[in-house]
Design a protein around this nucleic acid. Structure first.
Lengths: 196, 196, 196, 196
DNA sequence: CAGTAAACGAGACGGTACGTCGTGTCTTATT
DNA sequence: AATAAGACACGACGTACCGTCTCGTTTACTG
C-alpha cells in the first residue's frame, strides 16, 4: 500500500560486505578483523557498513547467518527409530565440524561476539540456534513417544547436558573431543533421562 | 650459593599493574580495558607491562590468578556423606557467583581471552582450573567409595556434564540459571552415573 | 570542466597546525617541539599532520613560510642612489633582526632542519631565499648601471661575501655582530667589487 | 704531589665511547645517533656516559676533538711568499674536504650541535677553531709585513669574508663549491684588503 | 523522461590506543 | 668508587582503526 520509497539499499554492496567479512575472518583471523579492512576488501565506503549494521559483531553475525541459511530451509535430524544411534551420528558430525579449521575460526569469532553482546546473543538464539534446537527437540519427542526417553524428561536440560560439554571443551580447549567422547556423552545422557 | 642476579623485577610495579587491571575491568569493562589505561592507573611505564607480559590477556589472567590464589591454599568440597546434598550446595554457590556482577565481568573477560589464545587456555587450565577440579574429583571418588556413584564412572565426563551446561548458559546467556536448574543438573547427572 | 575532486584538505586544520607550530617554537623552543604537541595545541589528530607533511622540519618550514609570505608580495630594497648607504641600512636591519629573540628562535630552528635535510634546503632556497635574493640582485645591477659596482662583478659571490659572514657569526655564535660590523662588511665588499 | 685518589675514570671506556660515537655517526647518521646506541656499541653502561658528559652534543664534540687533535700539534699554513697562492691552496683543500662524505657527516653533526648549544659553541671555538684560526692569522700578518695585505686590515673580518661564504654554501647547500669558487673568493678578498 | 533525493565510493577528520624507542635516573652486583 | 647491565617512569614516535563527517557520483523512483 505504502509506496515504500524507503532506503534503497544496495544488495550488491551488502553481499560484498558479507563475503569480505567471511574471507577476512578466514585469512587474518577474528582478532585482526576491522571495519576498515572489510570496507576496503568489499570495495565499499565505511559509511555503508555503519549505515546498516550497529557493530562489528553484527556484521560477523550476518555474514555467518547468510552461510547457515543456505543449508537451512527444513532441518531435520535422522530418525532410524533408535535414538541412541541417531544422537551418536549427530554428535559425531558436530565433533567433525569442530575439528575442521574452516569451520572453527568463524564460529569461534561468532561466539566471542555473542559472549560480550547480549543483544547479539538474542539474535543468535532466535535466528541460528532455535531452528536447529527445534529439530533436535522434535527428534527427542519422537523418542519419548517410542519409549526411549522418559515421558517427563526436561528436554531442554537434556539437550544442554548433551551438547554443552562438547561445545565447552572445544571453545575453551579444555579437553580432547573425538567420536568416543561423543558416544560416551550420548550414553550418559540417555541413562540420565531413561524411562523409569 | 647461586648469586641469582636474574631479572631485577619490581614487585611494587607488578602489584600495582595487577591491581589496576582488576579495578579497570570492574570500572570500565573488559572491552575498554587498555594497556595504556592500566599503565596510567598503576603509575607505571607502558614498557614495564610489555616487558613482563606478552599480551593484554596475560595481564588479565595474572590479575585474576592473584585473586584466586589468595583464597586458594587447600580447596576442599563439603562432605556431608551425601553426594547429592554436597553437589547441590556447590552448584548453587556457582549459580550465585554468576549472578553477582562483581564476579561476572572479570571471569567473562578471562574466558574471552582464553577462547582466542590457546597458550592462555593452557595456563588457565593448569593454574586455575586444575586445583578446583582436583578437589571435585576427590569428593566424587569419596562418593564412589560410599557407593553413591558407579565405580566405573568416567569422572571427567561426569564433571563436564555437571558444569558445562551451567557455564554455557551463563557464558552465552542461552538460558536462565537458578537454584532449581542447579538441582535438576545434579539429579540428572547422578542418575547418569548411578551405581548399577 | 575538470571535476577536480582532489584531496579535500581542511584549510582550517592547516592553519591551526601552522599557528600552533609557530607558537610552540616560541614557547618551548625548537628542541622540545613535538608532532604530538603541535597536534594537541592545534586540536587536530596526529594523522592529519602526517598525512600532509613528510617530516617535522617540513611543518616548521611551512609555518615560517606562511609568515614570510604575509610580508612578501613584492620585496624591494631601498634605492637612494648610493649603494653603500642602501646596503648599510639593509645589513643593519638584518643585524637588528638577529638580535631579536622573537626572530632568532624560529629561524635558527629552520636552519637546523635545512642543514640536515637537502630536500628542505631546496624548498627553502626556492620559496624563501630566492625572492629576497632577487631583490638584492636587482639593487646591485642598478648599482652597476650607476657605476658603483664593477660591471663584470660576480654578484652571487658578492652577495655571499656580504651576507655569509653575518649569518655565520650569528648561527655559530662565533663573533659579535653590530652596526659597525655591518658597515665594515659593506665597505670591504664594495672595495672588493669596486669598478676598475 | 697530591695522592690524586679522585675519580678513577676508565680510559678504556672513554676511548670505546668516543670511537663508537664516530662509527655510529658515519653508519647511521647524526639524526639517529643515540646515547643508548653508543653505550651498546661501546660495551659500556649508559650511566658511564651520563657521568662524564653533560649532553649528547658534548660526546659528539669530544669524539671529533680526539680526531682533530691527532693531526694537531703545531698547525702551520704554507708560506711560499705569495699570499694569493697560499690562500688558494688552503681553500681548495677545504673545498676538497667538504666534498668528502667521510668528513661531511661528522662535521655537519658537530655544527648542528653547536648551533643549538652556546656552551658547546664556546668549547668549539676555544679548542678546535682557535688553533687553526691563529695559524691563519699568522700567515696573514706575514703577508701584511710583505706588503701583500693592507697594514690596517681587520684580519678577523678578512677571515670571515674568506671562509664564511664557503662554509655557508656547504652547510646550507645553497650553492656549488669548487676550486674556481675558492679562487674567486681568494681574489675578491685580497682585493678588498689590498694595500692602499 | 527529466528531476531529485537517497545511498553510494572515497577518504579526510578528531581521537584513542597500539607497540617501540630513547631519555635520564635508579639499583644491583662486579671489579 | 667506578663500572656493565639493565629495570624503571616518562614522553614521543609513526601506524592502525575508530566512528563521524563531507564530498562528488550513481541509481531508481517519482512527478
Amino acid at each position: 500500500m505504502a509506496p515504500e520509497s524507503g532506503p534503497r539499499r544496495s544488495e550488491r554492496s551488502r553481499q560484498a560486505i558479507l563475503a569480505a567479512t567471511r574471507e577476512l575472518i578466514a585469512e587474518v583471523g577474528y582478532g585482526k578483523l576491522s571495519i576498515e579492512g572489510i570496507a576496503a576488501r568489499a570495495g565499499v565506503g565505511k559509511q555503508t557498513i555503519y549505515r546498516w549494521w550497529p557493530s562489528k559483531g553484527a556484521v560477523v553475525f550476518d555474514s555467518l547467518l547468510a552461510l547457515s541459511q543456505d543449508s537451512a530451509g527444513d532441518i531435520e535430524l535422522p530418525d532410524t527409530g533408535d535414538i541412541r544411534t541417531d544422537l551418536r551420528s549427530v554428535l559425531r558430525a558436530t565433533v567433525a565440524e569442530f575439528a575442521d579449521d574452516e569451520f572453527q575460526a568463524p564460529i569461534r569469532a561468532l561466539h566471542t561476539e555473542i559472549m560480550n553482546d547480549p543483544q547479539l546473543a538474542t539474535a543468535y538464539r532466535e535466528r541460528m540456534d532455535t531452528p536447529v534446537r527445534e529439530a533436535k527437540l522434535r527428534r527427542l519427542r519422537s523418542a519419548q513417544r517410542a519409549g526411549q526417553v522418559a515421558e517427563d524428561a526436561d528436554l531442554d536440560l537434556l539437550l544442554d547436558m548433551l551438547y554443552a560439554p562438547l561445545t565447552q571443551r572445544w571453545l575453551l580447549r579444555s579437553g580432547g573431543i573425538d567420536a568416543a567422547f561423543a558416544d560416551a556423552l550420548v550414553d550418559a545422557t540417555l541413562r540420565a533421562f531413561a524411562p523409569a
